[in-house]
Write a protein that binds this DNA or RNA. Structure first.
Lengths: 337, 337
DNA sequence: CACGCCTACCCAATCGATTGGGTAAGCGGT
DNA sequence: ACCGCTTACCCAATCGATTGGGTAGGCGTG
């Protein structure tokens, strides 16, 4: 009972001696006032009183009738991941601007949790979902489509579904061009999780461009890994042990993995930026602050979040939005200069 | 319309030839079945059918009647701050376990936004608030109390209100003991924002213990700053310019500020851990991964989040919970060893 | 003058779950 | 046979906003 002295539509109506439905029409219809809802004078009186009494419509009641909650459900792997947290900030902001509120949950990239969380969201009657943890395999998305749940993807894409992502293929391409032009010919990729389009696309963009430049990338120079520092460290160890000759440059598809890799390089007595170039992805605020600042692909995370909300809005309005890919830029720093 | 073929209480009742109210009582009352709500056989039939049809009660309708949403509103400075994001994970988990959902918003520590966001939350009819961005000054909390909005604080405390925080005073004390025992006698503090109890308490804990150990801390060795890397860097610059003799140890009340400070030390040709010891606070996952691993006070962030939810639950149940301070531990690493 | 059309409202049903107050049937006891 | 009690339900109001369908009065027009 946080609302305490709740003012209802009926209270306003009674006080003005008019019918609640009239009050509703005046306050609710954005512009329908002109179209016969009420006289200008009455509308004015109603709005004044509403303001004075601090009337705030009960979304429960409205939703019960309209079957809409103006709630968007957001599912992310984890909010303590800076990337998703930042995208979420964009979503929160954009949703607020459209009169929606957002609802986030963490799935920890676990398929069971994903299912549980979507169910919780739907039980809350969200109008639609924004899914930030889509897996390339798995059939949750198909199920949701079958159940006619409106949703869009963010961060990761899956072909056939509307999504707002970074153009990860382009991001990988930029890194390939950069390292090639710096004269590197012997590189390795810390590729991330194979179920995530971010990992797959960044890697593919890099590898494809590298090959079309005439470079070679043997199979064991592409190492799949977790997205965190520990994952990056392990992957780098792996590369240092198994790749001969040792690569002169590493591309990690994620800044945290890159930081882990830098640690591994250090422990092997290699100097980052000198012996081995390292490039990360996302340009999280930390990249620039490291002792050896990390080159990284900057992805427009806030905009991606905002775009996702707009896509979902369009979907809710009956359109069938196309996937959107926002352009990344490469920030070159000491680690690869 | 995410729920699509929504099954209602009435559908179940009709199919079984009984009254909706009976179905409601069976499904809703946790254990009231024994107390004359319905026969065991009927209860069984109802529950089976509910499961089979995938019935999920409409929270809008229930809330409209009961005036409760089972929603907790959470307000944080920003979710892209790892500390708050982690606490939020704890809250989300604990809330789910109690049958509540959480609703987060970012205030960016801006008083106007704080007000706006709380209003949005209340308009959504949350049952209570968890406030993670409380300012020591300002009168928002008093207003909320006057409006009889149930809330608890998390992360930061303000005396007189229930809160779940780290024992920040103790944290500061631990750091003082540690640096003193390492033989430092000349220290400075990067103190954070003076409106946040985290900053104030950590600083006070440190300074008080330092003095009681017989140490001295001149006024200009305590520098207030923002909580991010840039803030830490500026504060460190400030200290290096104005403190003579230069301190041999720095305590930053936040890991990010510590990282910024480490950067500043480096640019002055000083080696962290060798020339100058640095200790941070929160033990964010990055601290251990830095080239020179950062000593930091580990605060039990997940538990703090969980505790906050439990406090709010107790408050909603009519109790008046006391503030809870969870104990931190010091993790000593190279930066101060 | 009669008719139709606005204008400015009112009426009542509705969304789905909850809950206080019934009530009929059945049974035991006297 | 009657009373009282329990069991197992049913009934109907209620929460607050929305919305399709009125309707009374006024005005213009042929």
């Amino acid at each position: 009972m946080a609302g305490n002295t709740t003012v209802t539509l009926r209270d306003l109506a009674d006080e003005l001696g008019i019918h609640p439905s009239t009050v509703s029409r005046i306050l609710h219809s954005d512009s329908a006032v002109a179209r016969g809802a009420a006289s200008v004078a009455t509308a004015e009186r109603v709005r004044d009183l509403a303001r004075k009494r601090g009337y705030s419509p009960d979304p429960q009641a409205a939703g019960l009738r309209t079957r809409r909650t103006r709630l968007m459900g957001v599912i992310v792997p984890r909010l303590s991941d800076l990337v998703l947290a930042t995208m979420y900030e964009g979503m929160d902001e954009a949703a607020a601007a459209l009169g929606y509120s957002t609802f986030v949950m963490n799935s920890r990239d676990d398929p069971q949790e994903q299912r549980r969380k979507t169910d919780t969201m739907l039980a809350r009657r969200v109008d639609g979902l924004i899914i930030g943890d889509a897996h390339l395999d798995g059939d949750l998305l198909r199920e949701l489509t079958d159940r006619k749940v409106p949703f869009v993807l963010v961060n990761r894409r899956v072909s056939g579904y509307p999504s707002a992502t970074c153009d990860d293929v382009l991001g990988g391409t930029l890194v390939a061009d950069h390292l090639w032009s710096k004269g590197h010919r012997n590189v390795a990729v810390i590729a991330g999780e194979p179920y995530a389009s971010t990992a797959v696309d960044r890697t593919a963009g890099f590898v494809d461009r590298w090959r079309s430049l005439g470079g070679k990338i043997p199979q064991n120079s592409v190492v799949w890994s977790r997205f965190d520092t520990a994952g990056g460290r392990e992957a780098a160890e792996n590369i240092l042990t198994h790749c001969h000759p040792a690569p002169t440059a590493l591309f990690a598809v994620n800044d945290f993995a890159a930081i882990g890799a830098m640690g591994a390089l250090r422990s092997h007595g290699l100097t980052v930026g000198d012996d081995v170039a390292v490039v990360g992805f996302n340009d999280t605020s930390l990249a620039a602050e490291l002792p050896i600042p990390l080159s990284s692909v900057r992805s427009p995370m806030l905009d991606i979040g905002r775009t996702a909300v707009q896509l979902l809005k369009r979907l809710l309005d009956g359109e069938i939005p196309e996937p959107v890919r926002l352009e990344p830029t490469l920030c070159v720093r000491e680690s690869s200069a």
